[in-house]
Design a protein around this nucleic acid. Structure first.
Lengths: 108, 108
DNA sequence: CAATCTATAGACCGAATGTCAATAGACTAT
DNA sequence: ATAGTCTATTGACATTCGGTCTATAGATTG
């Protein structure tokens, strides 16, 4: 699925971020703390970079270990737009299913 | 995901059905004709039966080859209820993401 | 009785996902 | 200063899932 990918791109659409900051940013979109494995997130970030939807650079002047800071690319913005349209479709399909289920329930 | 599973259970929630009839019933929920492979559907039906969410029996008096007719079980109804709640959550999360994306876009 | 159609079943493969360490540098405290 | 802990990232392995393709088998049709 591309829901996680879309969430990350929306966060990066706002401002650049690194692994852990994006991790905590995800709670906004329904990812419960601890539910999401950080390894998965890093892998998705690498995949997004391989697809040239984001670019990364080491943040030299941050406390602690260096952070790989990700920035969304123009291509990433375009892809995000596509994905948001697909998610809108997906939402409508869920609504249709909900309606169908509720209808049958009412007539019981 | 359990979207396809939920669609099938909603259809069986209405009335019993077999592979091909369920296949055409899916168009209602956004599956375009020919997009969905019938093999996948049969496998999901077998999985649902293995999980005891549906039960099946051969329809002896139908034209052509015998049809395996599926019926939703009580356990299946309960599970469908759970899944519908999860799908409602998922829809809300998509709405949240859409709102976040649109907000940033407006302020550009 | 050969060909075709409907219906179901099974095998295989690759992509996506989850889980679990492993690394490595920076900070903290004794 | 050095052992221990914390932050941040990376990599390896195992499982699950979806997609595709082929096989079977009986029914119908010409």
């Amino acid at each position: 699925m591309f829901f996680l990918q879309s969430c990350l791109l929306v966060l990066l659409h706002r401002e650049p971020g690194y692994g852990y900051s994006l991790m905590s940013g995800l709670t906004e979109f329904g990812f419960e703390a601890g539910q999401m494995d950080i390894s998965i997130l890093y892998r998705v970030l690498r995949d997004l970079e391989a697809a040239q939807l984001v670019s990364s650079a080491w943040d030299e002047n941050s406390l602690g270990p260096k952070r790989r800071v990700y920035t969304i690319t123009a291509e990433g913005e375009a892809r995000l737009n596509d994905w948001m349209q697909l998610l809108r479709q997906r939402r409508r399909h869920i609504e249709t299913l909900e309606a169908a289920y509720d209808t049958v329930n009412k007539s019981d």
